Computed example of a mutant assay.
Amino acid sequence: MKTLKITAMVVLVCVMSAFTLIKTHAGYHVGDVAADFSLKNVNNKKVALADYKDAKGFIVIFTCNHCPYAKAYEDRIIALDKKYKKLGYPVIAINPNNPTIQPADSFDLMQERAKEKGFTFPYLFDEGQKIYPVYGATKTPHVYVLEKTKAGNVVKYIGAIDDNYSDETAVKTKYVENAVDALLKGQEVPVKTTKAIGCSIKA
């Protein structure tokens, strides 16, 4: 009887531990407060959300060098930054990939890509792959629109940039633009979550 009780307790502890692990690594949902980070930019300087004192929020995009989906969106990401940075919602791009698994996403090649494309936004390296699991990102690109509030940076939208990665001219719904436009007007985000379409994160 004593053995059965001990076995039951061990099973219960294991189940609770597994649940805690899943909950811890499930990532953010709309309404959650996103933690800040401090990551190295391609200019070798650390960048944190707290550095942007006058920002109203952020367009955090997990992206990378090698993924064809990420490449297809590069010009659109630059356009998002140019349009919304001056309105208080700058783009913060983060490369979540492990360069030992995907060498094309090394920090040196990030610097080259940023220069080649003329990135107007920080392009940060998630060294050790510590930040993307906290957010719950699974793809490149994967977007998190955050609104700065007294409670912190609240997640307002998660998902894709728009509804057509392969053909910008055929886009019907611009999810990120619609989300930020709504926030700037003090309105509810019309579509709060969509499925991120892209390459799986290489960790």
Results as ranks from 00 to 15, higher is better:
82 K>G: 08
82 K>N: 08
82 K>A: 10
83 K>I: 03
84 Y>E: 05
85 K>M: 04
86 K>Q: 11
87 L>S: 06
88 G>W: 09
88 G>E: 10
89 Y>L: 13
89 Y>N: 08
89 Y>K: 13
90 P>Y: 05
90 P>S: 06
90 P>W: 08
91 V>H: 12
91 V>A: 09
91 V>K: 10
91 V>T: 05
92 I>E: 05
92 I>F: 07
92 I>N: 03
93 A>I: 03
93 A>M: 02
94 I>Q: 08
94 I>F: 10
94 I>P: 02
94 I>N: 10
94 I>M: 11
95 N>A: 14
95 N>S: 15
96 P>D: 05
96 P>R: 01
96 P>E: 06
97 N>F: 01
98 N>K: 08
99 P>A: 10
100 T>P: 07
100 T>Y: 11
100 T>R: 13
101 I>S: 12
101 I>T: 09
101 I>P: 01
102 Q>C: 12
103 P>A: 15
103 P>D: 09
104 A>L: 00
105 D>P: 07
106 S>F: 05
107 F>R: 07
107 F>D: 06
108 D>Y: 04
109 L>N: 08
111 Q>F: 08
111 Q>S: 09
111 Q>C: 12
111 Q>E: 12
111 Q>Y: 02
112 E>Q: 15
112 E>V: 15
113 R>A: 11
113 R>Y: 09
114 A>N: 12
114 A>V: 05
115 K>Y: 01
115 K>F: 01
115 K>Q: 05
116 E>L: 04
116 E>K: 12
116 E>N: 08
116 E>S: 10
117 K>I: 09
117 K>C: 14
118 G>Y: 03
120 T>H: 06
120 T>V: 14
120 T>F: 00
120 T>D: 09
120 T>L: 02
120 T>N: 07
120 T>K: 04
122 P>V: 13
122 P>E: 14
123 Y>W: 08
123 Y>C: 07
124 L>S: 14
124 L>F: 13
124 L>H: 10
125 F>N: 00
125 F>L: 02
126 D>Y: 06
127 E>H: 15
127 E>I: 08
128 G>E: 03
128 G>M: 04
129 Q>V: 13
130 K>F: 09
131 I>D: 00
132 Y>V: 01
133 P>D: 09
133 P>I: 14
133 P>H: 06
133 P>Q: 14
